[in-house]
Nucleic acid binder design. Structure first.
Lengths: 334, 334
DNA sequence: AAAAACTACGCAATCGATACCAGAAACGGC
DNA sequence: GCCGTTTCTGGTATCGATTGCGTAGTTTTT
């Protein structure tokens, strides 16, 4: 097996000590320029690369961060990851992605796994199933820097990056109302999620502002966040079957929107098809379904922001106690 | 900052040596059962976790592997990654994903980065831009286990996992011909890619088998593999503008299919819209565009296979010289 | 009863790099 | 010429874990 050249090899070849080599490579001021150059030249010639593992051990830093999302095959998250990566790579960090597939168990295992792999910090968007946050809380209390994004935990003391879900939802519903829709069903995500509550808040606010009554029978929660297509289909079917028909459906997430559109194709004939509007970052839908109205989150920017905040946490000398909640505006694409 | 408990702490507390602790934890036969139990109990009680970084340094193994794909926001790759992960996690490996965004430069940097981070192996699907393989070849020659999947390099001596592109393409074209289409344009990926050649091979074979002439003017190559939407749109536009109209378009990849469908919506009015058929793993398209016919690759299985092969390479004692090329069948979804 | 074998554990080197503490050599000031 | 600085370099401990070798102490063999 291939064995890369080490600092010792250089020291031996140049008949200096490893200390000198190490200091030369880190361009220490206290090394003679001539010596430094000799070392640097030899290192370059023999393609010396410092061993990051040894460095990690010594510095108790791994220069890698972990990301936990429900899945990467989701436009919102893949865009967010692009944002995270762009910042991370520039700052010399590696990004380790893990998917929870909206399962509490996998999320727990993955986070444990990542923490053990000594990541320097964690970027987490919780799984839809997760109701108990103690595993995240525990890591945070142990001193591991954590930034939450998108699906955050209200009670946790750390930086949070979200989009303005309430206002996004309100705007979407207002848009529907402006176009004459008044009986708007809502397919929501898992009930306990922060985003669900906020989007629901926007929904009710818009109704209220327009003097419309909130009708509980129009609401459907999907506890598995769309990972269970059957659940989505049942929700759609039961809305279509209502006595007093809904003329529009507002869908709370990207994954759910896809599931809902799929279900609709199955159940409804094209003619009396309720108007669909929902949160989604799938840009392809605009052209494929010009009729689809969506709330687009600034996923890339959210990723950038979250990563910046995480780097800040990691690299701050003292323990940070003053946490921010950053809220970014959404955009309504018609 | 949080400092986890080490083997030394245990040794001190129990008044034994670190060797004894280490051996107890790895359940060595030469340690007294009573001692072993004391250690194990103390470790459990104080939540001892072995430091993977120290282990990596000692064993020259990191139990993590790197994956390089063009992008995760692509159904084929996200499904493949799911397959990779499922095998990796079961075998105790971490997966580090990096995206080339179809840029040669980023691919080079990423692979270098991963190799430096001491991954134990690499799973690579090349970027569309990559024509020079020396960076991958070099890593492989240095002894780093590498398995190529999907977009492979013909000349390289290593395991390869692909789908039967030729047969998949042939079947798709045959399907089109069976439905009465005879003038079939082809929007292909970057010309030098293996998958491009194979799919093109299937295309010409099908024409030939049906006594149709191969017409070069019907072919469009997209050097950026769809990462440059302008390129795709120009290709589509120029096909639509042809004197002798094409009645169908066969698209060579997932990304290109999306780009092509987008472009079509822009340029063609719905009536005289050529039939579209292409490689794609976007399951959502089936319901959104029932008219779209696609070749589906067994992405998940490819990921599983590739990861299995990689683990085999990593864990084999002797250097492997007998390499396999695994080819999996595609599926035509109508 | 002496020799051999075995059990159970400790010492110390090692992985690759860094950093604190010394110390040699050169230099300047008076 | 002596002493105090400065400049440059080396020795060595350290990060956390593993492992080959050595060795007390006990048991078995002959």
């Amino acid at each position: 097996m291939f064995k890369p050249i080490t600092i010792k090899d250089i020291a031996q070849a140049l008949k200096v000590s490893t200390s000198t080599v190490s200091r030369s490579l880190s361009d220490s001021y206290e090394i003679n320029t001539a010596t430094k150059l000799r070392v640097l030249e030899y290192a370059k010639e023999h393609k010396y690369k410092r061993n990051p593992i040894a460095l990690s051990l010594k510095q108790r830093r791994s220069y890698s961060i972990g990301v936990s999302v429900c899945e990467v095959a989701n436009s919102f998250f893949s865009q967010a990851i692009d944002g995270i990566e762009s910042v991370a790579y520039r700052a010399g960090y590696h990004v380790i992605i893990s998917q929870s597939h909206d399962s509490y168990e996998r999320e727990t295992i993955n986070l444990e796994h990542l923490a053990n792999r000594s990541v320097d910090g964690l970027l987490v968007s919780m799984s839809a199933e997760t109701k108990d946050f103690s595993h995240i809380q525990k890591l945070s209390e142990q001193g591991l820097p954590i930034v939450l994004f998108d699906r955050v935990i209200a009670g946790m003391d750390t930086h949070k990056v979200t989009s303005n879900n309430r206002e996004g939802a309100r705007g979407a519903i207002q848009g529907l109302i402006d176009n004459g829709y008044t009986r708007i069903a809502h397919i929501a995500n898992a009930e306990h999620l922060s985003i669900t509550k906020e989007r629901m808040g926007g929904y009710t606010l818009a109704l209220q502002q327009n003097g419309l009554l909130f009708d509980e029978t129009l609401i459907r929660y999907c506890e598995h966040g769309g990972s269970d297509q059957g659940e989505v289909e049942r929700a759609v079917a039961s809305i279509l079957e209502m006595q007093e028909k809904a003329d529009a459906i507002f869908v709370a997430s990207d994954r759910l929107s896809i599931g809902c559109l799929t279900a609709l194709k199955k159940y409804a004939d094209r003619s009396d098809h309720p108007k669909i509007c929902g949160f989604s970052n799938s840009d392809i839908l605009d052209t494929l379904l010009p009729d689809f109205m969506r709330v687009r989150q600034p996923a890339f920017e959210m990723g950038e922001m979250a990563m910046n905040k995480l780097i800040h946490l990691i690299e701050s000398k003292r323990r940070v106690t003053n946490f921010e909640s950053i809220v970014l505006d959404t955009e309504l694409v018609i």
